[in-house]
Design a protein around this nucleic acid. Structure first.
Length: 425
RNA sequence: GGAGAGGUGGCAGAGCGGUUGAAUGCACUGGUCUUGAAAACCAGCAUAGGUUAAUAGCCUAUCGUGGGUUCAAAUCCCACCCUCUCCGCCA
């Protein structure tokens, strides 16, 4: 959520920066609401004050045995007036809140203005795409030939956008996840957490999935709905909801391996082949909760932590700075890491690391006690994939394929594969 | 699923429907004392919103959440959520 104070002080600036993200803020409408809010709130508070004062008088009078009838008469219809005013205020506040809760975060000034992914900026790259002296296959063909990747079997059970893995491929998938978790916990200072895969609406609201992106999530039909997490960013970040953290507690670094569930509504024709875009996929996620002053450095570090995984796997990639039009709802700055996929002859997103400023913290009411001011202030939150396991599996298969269709196992993964060096027939 | 108990400030824990934003203890901050520390003593210490130059003052709200009763609700009523104990079931 944006800072309501900022909207009072400089709504034009806010509107402009939101426009660069493709969000239109109706300035006149909001200002009108704000003026109404102010007037009615003052009125409500005055009425409440009157009621409080008179109630106290009645209390005193009664205690000293005086007749309270005249006092009661004097406030006969104050209650109704007050209730009406309170209702009006409620309506205005909820209208205001509707606008505020569906407005995306303000982009960092350094983020390039742009419409879509074609305006993203490459900020670095690592490794060179490997050249093959045979005709490369994509992961679908490789997987099918090895009998390790079966979309049909999954479709029989669950429909499209699911994949079943078997044998060595399934193990490789698991090995990747374990390797990532171990690296982040032992080398990058993250604490592993195991989290619920179903969360309540408040948690989804806290990180920004609700109310705007309800259609992207799977929901249970219970009386109190639960949402299947689209990423473990949701449970991990919301761990600090409502908390006032001590300065000593920060920065908080957490990592979790979880499945992620996404409806993928609105992406019907896209990436229908293979394991790129699924309703269910595993992801190792990194989350950091930091004092605002540390946020920028933390994003670079976190991006480095994701990169480290790819480097250890010797997979070529590039890092992109997302433009305003391509960033997620809660982000003020996002680094996407795109891995080279020989089967697609292109770079594809495998990680997304975002700095969210106090946007999520304001929604979650997550604060820390700043020693300088002595007061509770909003924390900053960051999240990043480290990495999407399914896509990493694809990348390993396609980059490590051999002429005979077998897959060489990257050295760092061999300890996780019982020493196995190659997956073949 | 059945029976019961309970949800109050950073924590623990009081609170006959009336001047209670809330006793007390611990923790924390400042001070006195001390060579220093501890102890002891004194003082301070919630969050958010409004107004304001002000993180001064004043006002409002907040005792799980949402409704209700009342001139007045932490205190009474209803619903929901959560926690704990016992029984049943279960990976």
């Amino acid at each position: 959520m944006l800072d309501p104070q900022l909207l009072r002080q400089d709504i034009q600036m806010v509107a402009e920066r939101l426009t660069s993200r493709g969000f239109t803020l109706d300035v006149t409408a909001y200002q009108k609401l704000e003026a109404e809010r102010k007037a009615i709130q003052i009125k409500v508070q005055e009425l409440q004050q009157q009621r409080n004062e008179r109630s106290k008088l009645i209390g005193k009078a009664k205690a000293s045995g005086e007749d309270i009838e005249p006092l009661l008469k004097a406030i006969a219809n104050l209650g109704d007036t007050q209730k009406q005013a309170e209702q009006v205020l409620q309506t205005i506040l909820s209208q205001q809140n509707e606008v505020l809760s569906s407005a995306p975060n303000l982009p960092d000034p350094a983020v390039p203005i742009g419409k879509d992914e074609s305006d993203n900026l490459e900020i670095s790259h690592w490794g060179e795409p490997h050249s093959f002296d045979f005709k490369v296959k994509d992961h679908v063909d490789l997987g099918a030939a090895l009998g390790g990747m079966d979309a049909e079997a999954a479709a029989k059970l669950s429909g499209s956008r699911f994949t079943l893995l078997r044998g060595g491929i399934a193990r490789l998938h698991r090995a990747l996840a374990q390797f990532m978790l171990d690296t982040h916990t032992s080398e990058h200072g993250y604490t592993e957490v195991y989290v619920p895969y179903l969360v309540g609406p408040e948690a989804m609201y806290g990180t920004g999935q609700l109310p705007k992106f309800e259609d992207d999530a799977f929901v249970t039909t219970d009386e109190v709905p639960r949402y299947l997490i689209p990423t473990s960013e949701v449970p991990m970040t919301n761990l600090v909801a409502g908390e006032i953290l001590a300065a000593d507690d920060l920065p908080l670094r957490m990592t979790a391996l979880t499945p992620c569930f996404r409806r993928e509504a609105g992406s019907y024709g896209r990436d229908t082949r293979g394991m790129i875009r699924q309703h269910q996929f595993e992801k190792v996620e990194m989350v950091q909760v930091v004092p605002p002053a540390m946020a920028s450095a933390a994003l670079d570090e976190m991006t480095g932590h994701a990169e480290a995984i790819l480097q250890k796997l010797k997979l070529p990639y590039r890092v992109m700075l997302l433009c305003t039009g391509d960033m997620g709802f809660a982000a003020e700055r996002t680094h996407d890491i795109e891995v080279w996929l020989p089967g697609q002859d292109s770079y594809r997103e495998i990680s997304s690391c975002s700095r969210c400023g106090d946007f999520q913290a304001r929604r979650m009411k997550s604060r820390w006690r700043n020693p300088e001011s002595g007061r509770p202030e909003l924390v900053n939150t960051l999240n990043g994939s480290g990495l999407a396991v399914g896509r990493t599996l694809i990348a390993v298969m396609e980059n490590y394929q051999q002429a005979d269709g077998s897959i060489l196992i990257p050295e760092v993964l061999r300890p996780y594969m019982g020493g196995l060096e190659v997956i073949g027939n």
